[in-house]
Design a protein around this nucleic acid. Structure first.
Length: 240
DNA sequence: AACCAGGACGTGA
DNA sequence: TCACGTCATGGT
């Protein structure tokens, strides 16, 4: 049954790569923060994040900035904002438009992402610390399904599985979904499968957070350049 | 030098 | 609904 396959995939990825320590925070310096391919920000094996409203907001910032871009580019943008002392909602709002655009330029789409950030900040401030619903997030300009789930999963510790292009690509390769599978279809498969395997919500949350990170880690190695799945240990086991 | 990156929106069928 | 063009910089 495919529920078992999904959890089995998680176990194999975890066995191969270990805990990933997402979401990365630019001000976090832990003993385990020197993760392969990344130099900072990851809190491997620690799950009490975000530790403040500012860290929650940083997840939101990063989730928007990382749209269709690598996170290393986002880190540059976040450092630019930090240099402007503008990692808070109020401080970003005070920046003049061109300064903001220049700061986030490394992550691409700086014109529309600047608008997205400002739109989100208005929304975020109106929350006054409350956890947003998924529908509320989706109503904000610039927040689609993946970004909403990213914010909820890593910024607010909500049980919302984050599906990205890599997730679809791997599941398609393994024959667990078809090409026309939509975001909600893939999310439903992941969540229902994991729910059948894990009953404890706290454990489930950690798995949601680690699983997506593990998928990205694995996909960067074997699902970035075609032909996909070359050398992928999942592909040789699950397909057939 | 083409291709892809931790996507979302606007438009017209 | 859905397919398609657009948005932009940076790395391989």
């Amino acid at each position: 049954m495919s529920s078992d396959k999904i959890y089995n995939i998680y176990q194999k990825l975890y066995a191969a790569y270990g805990p990933q320590g997402w979401w990365p925070f630019i001000n976090y310096k832990g003993v385990n923060s020197s993760k392969e391919g990344n130099s900072e920000g990851y809190h491997i094996g620690e799950y009490s994040f975000p530790r403040s409203d500012l860290e929650c907001f940083e997840v939101c910032l990063g989730s928007i900035l990382t749209q269709n871009t690598t996170f290393t580019s986002v880190v540059k943008s976040l450092h630019n904002l930090k240099a402007l002392n503008a990692l808070s909602p109020k401080a970003i709002k005070k920046l003049d438009s061109d300064t903001l655009k220049q700061a986030i330029r490394p992550s691409g789409y700086h014109n529309q992402k600047a608008r997205y950030l400002l739109a989100f900040i208005d929304f975020y401030e109106a929350l006054e610390g409350r956890t947003p619903t998924r529908d509320e997030l989706l109503a904000v300009l610039g927040i689609g399904e993946e970004t909403a789930d990213s914010i909820l999963l890593y910024g607010y510790n909500q049980l919302e599985f984050k599906v990205d292009a890599y997730t679809k690509r791997i599941l398609l390769q393994l024959g667990l979904i078809d090409e026309k599978a939509k975001y909600k279809d893939v999310k439903k498969l992941m969540q229902e499968s994991l729910y059948n395997s894990i009953t404890d919500d706290k454990t489930l949350l950690i798995i949601y957070q680690e699983f997506h990170a593990l998928i990205v880690n694995h996909a960067k190695r074997y699902y970035s350049k075609k032909p996909y799945a070359e050398g992928c240990f999942l592909s040789t086991e699950f397909r057939s």
